[in-house]
């Protein structure tokens, strides 16, 4: 077989020409772009699967920031370990503003109570840009259980079963704390996510579950489940008639919060531009409507406040679980 030399030369030339195009728009290796920010697309990573509330929030914010800054903001889903995987990856990226992460508070405040040291994520290697919204948990009871209030719960003589949305979730923490503080006996039954937990309550497979408000509201409105208590600081505007655990005298403020963050070390001007873009997006009517539809309460606080609040919550939950001898997981 002949070795067509000409072809080989052509091939090699073509290959090297291709290699020379390395500078063109690839996403391999760190590209420290100096100059005006933003100089290219901004990747917004989400640590949850596509379609969930965190993902939808990310997409809304991404679209808004894209409009404001004039560059594409693609959303990339990297689910795994409740967001730990994605957060650690982004925290290790260069802090030039081209990589953002949408944070779930539970990863910082609750998950550390349930996982090992090396899986724990802290805000120390992140620069938080802005807090976004709050998503509350509500405890609902099945119609058949006959429970309509916290008093009913306390008076009950049966051992009740309580569904949670998994280990290390706000749902599990809130319920565990409430039961411990109110001295109620119950069996915790974990499910994979909110949906099966809610279904189980609807069918009276378990008597109670703590679910995120957005998921539970349609069933509450339809009268299929009865709201017992919410775990927010103040009464939730979407469920004004339901008391908070705090009101009832129990120290269980557990909510899910979301914030936008970047790797630590953002230059001041870059951060300012991002904060501005986010603020403008949050002010838009479409964002407000989005929050309404998904039953999110806006919590648009500055990055510094986010860090303070979340770290405070993390400490508080740690103290509470130790005080009441609660173990979210058996490590």
């Amino acid at each position: 077989m002949n070795f067509p030399r000409r072809r080989a030369v052509l091939g090699v030339t073509a290959a090297s020409a291709l290699l020379a195009l390395t500078a063109c728009g690839g996403n391999v290796g760190s590209d420290s772009s100096s100059g005006d920010f933003p100089s290219g697309p901004i990747t917004l990573t989400v640590g949850q699967a596509a379609g969930g509330s965190t993902d939808l929030i990310a997409r809304t914010m991404g679209a808004g920031i894209s409009d404001q800054l004039g560059v594409p903001v693609p959303v990339v889903n990297k689910p795994g370990a409740n967001g730990a995987l994605a957060t650690k990856e982004v925290a290790a990226m260069p802090a030039d503003g081209s990589n953002l992460i949408l944070l779930n508070a539970s990863l910082i405040t609750i998950t550390p109570l349930a996982v090992s040291e090396d899986e724990t994520v802290t805000l120390d290697n992140l620069d938080v840009i802005k807090g976004l919204s709050q998503d509350d948990y509500v405890m609902v009871a099945s119609k058949e259980s006959g429970i309509t209030s916290l008093d009913d719960l306390k008076k009950s003589t049966k051992t009740l079963t309580f569904g949670t949305t998994g280990v290390g979730t706000g749902s599990q923490l809130a319920q565990a704390l409430l039961l411990a503080q109110a001295d109620i006996k119950g069996t915790e039954v974990p499910f994979d996510s909110g949906s099966p937990a809610l279904t189980a309550v609807m069918g009276n497979q378990v008597q109670l579950s703590t679910i995120q408000l957005g998921e539970a509201k349609p069933q509450i409105d339809a009268g299929k489940v009865v709201p017992v208590v919410v775990f927010s600081d103040e009464r939730n505007t979407f469920l004004p008639d339901v008391p908070t655990a705090l009101e009832e005298g129990y120290d269980v403020p557990v909510s899910q919060y979301r914030a936008l963050a970047a790797p630590k070390g953002l230059p001041e001007d870059v951060k300012a531009k991002l904060v501005d873009a986010v603020d403008k997006t949050l002010a838009e009517d479409s964002t407000k409507a989005f929050n309404e539809k998904n039953l999110l309460t806006p919590k648009e606080i500055s990055g510094e406040e986010v860090v303070k609040q979340w770290n405070d919550l993390a400490t508080k939950y740690k103290d509470l679980t130790e005080e009441y001898d609660i173990e979210l997981s058996s490590k």
Binding site: L21, G26, V28, T43, V76
Partner: peptide
């Protein structure tokens, strides 16, 4: 598809 597969170009 605009996926994020690592690409050089």
């Amino acid at each position: 598809l605009q996926t994020t597969i690592p690409h050089l170009f």
